[in-house]
């Protein structure tokens, strides 16, 4: 696969930088040939950014086949947005009698607040943050409103309750949609422990009884999620979220806010990666390793750079859990497999 974006040397195989550039500077797609378009669309699907790309390119004169595919993606994103907001509304109805704050997180929050980060974004589960003191009542309320435990597995359940930052996953028996009920934004096993009470205190009402994090709170959470709560998988989408939040809200007070939650370094790195990937900024050598991981996807949609991927997978587990616990966790998983 060759890239048709002109400033990539022609011998360089396409990777997800093709997508990053198209998102950041939509006019550049005009130089793509059929093969370049095919690569771009395939990578965008694999990174779950096809809807975002479709909205960014809306209005440009595109080849008919591309316009049709992106039209489908826009319609799918709109339907996804509708379903996500409906899940939030059903959670609101179930939790309203409790009178506790309910903070929407991630994609649903961006869509509900009408933010740029929500435009075309694919949204999976409903993620909400509630005060830890209200967790038992929230659990009872969602169970009473048709949500059910996904897996009645005692090991996983004990693991979640003891160490994770959320209830075990729940799924609605009629609507078939998952809800993740968080009481903080990182696992309790992580070395950094953000202050969830503070995040909730700073949260912003949406006008319908639900809330979102403050703008800086959203950026801090997105950065924490990108680096500490996963193996950077889906990282390009998360980084695009951060790029949009920064563009919309700026970074005033962000560093102090990040420091207060012990997330100064992840937030600073996220901002550098945004600048490097989406604005052509300079990156340090360690940042470039992250860029390599974030863009490890070829024009057929295949994950590439397996060594880089593995390094990040081990690293992400190490961040979430102290080493002895990691071994115990993996052993339990292996034995059951």
């Amino acid at each position: 696969m060759r890239s048709a974006v002109t400033d990539l040397p022609p011998t360089v195989a396409a990777d997800a930088r093709l997508l990053a550039r198209a998102l950041a500077d939509p006019g550049r797609v005009m130089a793509l040939d059929a093969e370049g378009w095919t690569s771009l669309l395939t990578i965008a699907r694999a990174e779950q950014l096809i809807g975002t790309l479709a909205l960014r390119l809306d209005g440009l004169p595109l080849p008919h086949a591309v316009e049709a595919i992106l039209g489908d993606a826009r319609a799918a994103a709109e339907q996804g947005r509708r379903a996500a907001l409906w899940e939030a509304e059903m959670a609101r109805r179930a939790l309203a009698p409790l009178g506790c704050p309910v903070v929407l997180l991630k994609g649903t929050a961006y869509a509900a607040a009408g933010l740029m980060a929500g435009q075309g974004r694919s949204i999976g589960d409903l993620d909400i943050l509630v005060p830890r003191a209200a967790l038992d009542r929230v659990e009872a309320a969602v169970l009473g409103a048709g949500w059910e435990w996904v897996k009645p597995d005692p090991y996983d359940d004990a693991y979640y309750r003891r160490w994770m930052h959320e209830l075990p996953p729940l799924i609605h028996r009629e609507r078939d949609r998952m809800i993740d009920v968080h009481h903080t934004i990182l696992p309790l096993t992580a070395r950094v422990t953000p202050d969830p009470a503070r995040l909730i205190a700073d949260s912003v009402p949406l006008g319908n009884g639900l809330r979102t994090l403050s703008p800086n709170g959203m950026i801090v959470h997105a950065a924490a999620h990108l680096f500490a709560d996963g193996d950077l998988a889906g990282g390009l989408r998360n980084l695009w979220d951060i790029r949009c939040l920064v563009e919309e809200f700026g970074t005033e007070g962000l560093a102090e806010k990040a420091a207060r939650h012990g997330l100064r370094l992840p937030v600073a790195r996220a901002l550098r990666l945004v600048d490097g990937l989406f604005a052509g900024g300079r990156t340090s050598s360690s940042d470039r390793l992250y860029v390599r991981r974030l863009t490890a996807r070829d024009g057929w949609g295949r994950p590439t750079r397996p060594v880089t991927r593995l390094a990040f997978y081990v690293r992400s587990h190490a961040l979430r859990m102290p080493p002895a616990m990691l071994a115990r966790h993996l052993w339990t998983k292996w034995r059951k497999a």
């Binding site: 040939d33 059929a34 093969e35 378009w37 095919t38 669309l41 395939t42 080849p63 008919h64 086949a65 591309v66 049709a68 595919i69 057929w300 949609g301």
Partner: peptide, 9 residues
């Protein structure tokens, strides 16, 4: 495929 761009890979 139309315009040489496939809908699916």
């Amino acid at each position: 495929p139309q315009d040489g761009v496939a809908d699916y890979t």
